[in-house]
Structure formats: C-alpha cells, structure tokens
Design a protein around this nucleic acid. Structure first.
Lengths: 239, 239
DNA sequence: CAGTGGTCTAGACCACCTT
DNA sequence: AGGTGGTCTAGACCACTGC
C-alpha cells in the first residue's frame, strides 16, 4: 500500500490523513468528498477500511454522510449546529435565541493565565470583546471574549459581527470549533455588570468560563460569561 | 435467519435483543458474554453483524471488550465510572472525593412535578433523602434525593448508604444509570441550608437539578443539590 | 438509469490472554 | 496451543438520490 508502514491500524492512518486534509483546508466546509471507492483506490486500501475511517469522522462530527448523495465536510452553520454549544434554556423548555449588542472591543497583550490556556507567547496580542445578549428584549448575558490575533488576524476590523461568532471563525478564518470546556460557578454579579443586566447589586449569577477547541486540537478562544439565572438555566446531558 | 423479518437492519435487531437481555438481567454486571462466533450462530447471523451490534453497545457504555479475554457487561462501580456523572472539580484541577453524611430520610407521596418527571401515579410513594457532602472536612454540597419506592423497594431500610448511591442502585435493585440530565442555576442559598454549608446568608451557590435515566430509558431518580461555589466548579466538556 | 452510501456475508490474518 | 477480539479484504445486494 502507498501509506507509510506505520504501526497503527490502516484505518487510523487513513483517518489521520483525511483529518489532516480537512484541517489544512484541502477540503472546505460543505464540500463533497470523493466516494469511498475513489478514496480507497487513491490510498491503496479497501473500501471497508476507508468506510471505517469516514464513519469515525462522522461520529466526531467532522463529516456528514447522506445515502445516495455522498460525504460532505460538516458545515456547522445550521440552526442545529449553532446551538450545539449554547446550553442556556428556559426551565424544562425552549431554546433561547438571543439578540446581541457589542459593548466594546480593544487590543491588548495577553495575561499570564490567558497565554497559558491559549498556548501563546507572553507578549502576544489579543482582542477583548464585550457583548450583551438579550432574550425577548431583556438583557440576560454579558460576556467577554478573548481572541488571539495570531489566530484571527485583524478580527477587530470586522463590522457587523454575527450573533454566533463561530460562523465568522469558520467562514473567514478557517477555524472550526469542535468542542468546548466549560467551568461553571455561582457568583455575585460584579457591580460594573449589574446595571447591564438590570439586576440588583449582589444578585447571584452563573459565571461560565469557556475554552473553545479547534478541529486540530488548539484552544483558539476564551470567554467568560455572566448569566442572569432568573429565567433560564444551563442545561446539559451527560452520557 | 431466526430473527423476526422486521424492517430494521439486522444489526439493529441484534442490538435490541442483546440490550433487552441486559435490561432484564439475563446477563449481570461484570459477566462474560458468549463470544461473537457463538452469538452469531445462536442468532443465525454473521459474526460481522454481531460485532457491529456489540460495538454500538460498547460506544454506549453498556459493554466493555478486551482483546483476548472477551466481552463483559459494564460494571460502573470502578473509580472512573463513579465520577462519570460527578462534575465538581477544583478549578482547572483535581477530582474531588467527598465524604457524605445523611441528615434525614422520610417517605411521602410525590409532588405533581415529581410524578410527571418520574412517570409515576399521583399518589405514588417516594423516599426523600437529604445528605451533606464534605470535601476535606469542609461541607460543600447539600442535596435532596427523590427515590420512588416502586423502583427501589424499601430503600429507606438500608443502613450504611454508600458514598455513590449508583452502586447501591445497581447491586441491589438492578438499576444501571446510563445518563443524567442536569439543569444548573445560580441562586442565593436557602436560609435553612446556609448553616449546613458554613456560608453566610444569601451567598450565591450552584443549584443543580438532576434526572437520572436507567438503561431502559426510565427516569429513576431526581435530585436537587446546592453547591458552595467558593472552592470548586461544575466542569463539563461539550463535543 | 448510474452512482452513492448502508448492510451483510465470508474468510483471512494479527494481537492478546489464558492454560 | 487454543480462544478471544481487532483488522482488513472482497464481493454481493439494498435504499436512496439525481439526471
């Protein structure tokens, strides 16, 4: 076979190769991949081996397959995907779709803690973006987003940020967020934020610290959100 | 083949049959299953079809497989499994192992809300158990657990409840919790609980409402926990 | 109709565990 | 050595899509 004589299973080698192509942009979101048979011939392995690699990538949400049509690079810009990482819900109920207002945006050097989490040099530049998100015209979430300029060049030059930043990341910077790590605390809302959320000083709010991970495993964004917990909850299923 | 001429894929029929056997206790936790070849012959399908069903059950954590040894019913009583649904961590750090003290236990009829969530009759009986969990001798969590007596007969007759109730559920009642749904809020700690957690009145705490789901899909337990958020966080990875 | 992915089979060889 | 799961192959047929 034409692949390296590695010690790993063949399907794993195929998986790694195809994943690398995806990460490097050889195939772009929504693009149709070659069929199983074509890939198998190109790589010199059987169709079943290619299938095993492809199905694993589907399980990890990198690809989508449709019988009769083909295999596509996952888009992650559809309704269902946009809310994959948005866990705030009405109690026992509906998904909440927020409107968003940008309060401010500025460049600065990273803090020590941020540099560590983002694997950046101590003097690297980031953009700090502050937004307020409202549900039914009632302010509900205030969040601070940290974006490394090395990952998102001149991202602060964008006018009109989309409601879901991940769309911008994917379409303009080739960054596809595949997983997030959240740490959730209960805190008294900082005085400076109380008025933005129409809350009394000292009200309990959820503080959600998030790291977002790109398809290649790098942490590409940090955010800290303060969420009014009066009318909705952070909802998650563990399996 | 000996299976019903259903419209579903063969491997799905095999999956359903094997899952039913597990649910009904035909195979018990930690028991060794017959080999692929034996199952394939018994069911009149090929080894590959049995393998596909088994691998899906492994993905859903119902089974564990070991090369050279065989296929076993998942135990869920090992360290790693006990903390699968315990998401409280030190910030960026260690898993916390709590000690537990029972404050009280009583029988009563379900509330309307509980009956709905647990799919019980309006006059069904439940046990309400209140516990305080401490980390390093500091009280950190106070939780109220609702257990239907129809699911856990005479559970309040147990002396010496284990730290992780799920062990008791599995070993004594054949209940294997496969997933949980959490709803998380930030609230001021109820006055009655403040002293138990050594917190000032009105301190912000995490309130975690949990539904636990058995292997057969039934909700078998509800719990409400109030967690001091001073020294640890609810940590979760979304993929 | 041709092309795609989805299912199912059968057989081979390998890696690992136990005896 | 014998049994187990893990990998890989090859070929058949089915179900869905689009021309």
């Amino acid at each position: 076979m034409s692949l390296s004589a590695g010690f790993q299973p063949l399907y794993k080698q195929v998986y790694d190769l195809l994943t690398t192509r995806l990460v490097e942009g050889y195939w772009k979101p929504s693009q149709l991949l070659p069929s199983e048979m074509v890939l198998a011939e190109e790589l010199g392995v059987s169709q079943g081996t290619v299938r095993k690699a492809l199905n694993q990538m589907v399980a990890e949400k990198m690809l989508q397959r449709q019988q009769g049509k083909g295999t596509f690079v996952a888009e992650h810009t559809q309704e269902s995907d946009l809310f994959r990482f948005f866990r705030l819900r009405e109690p026992h109920g509906e998904i909440l779709i927020p409107e968003t207002v940008v309060l401010g945006s500025s460049r600065r050097t990273v803090s020590e803690d941020e540099a560590k989490k983002l694997s950046l040099d101590a003097n690297a530049l980031v953009v700090e973006l502050t937004r307020v998100r409202s549900i039914h015209n009632k302010p509900a979430i205030i969040e601070k987003v940290i974006q490394p300029l090395s990952v998102f060049p001149d991202i602060d030059k964008n006018t009109d940020l989309p409601n879901a930043l991940y769309i911008l990341y994917q379409e303009k910077y080739g960054i596809t967020v595949m997983s997030v790590n959240d740490e959730i605390r209960a805190v008294e809302i900082p005085d400076a934020y109380a008025q933005h959320l129409d809350l009394a000083k000292g009200s309990p709010v959820l503080m959600i610290e998030r790291s977002s991970v790109n398809i290649d495993g790098r942490v590409v964004e940090l955010s800290t959100a303060y969420c009014s917990s009066e009318n909705f909850v952070y909802s998650v299923q563990l399996t």
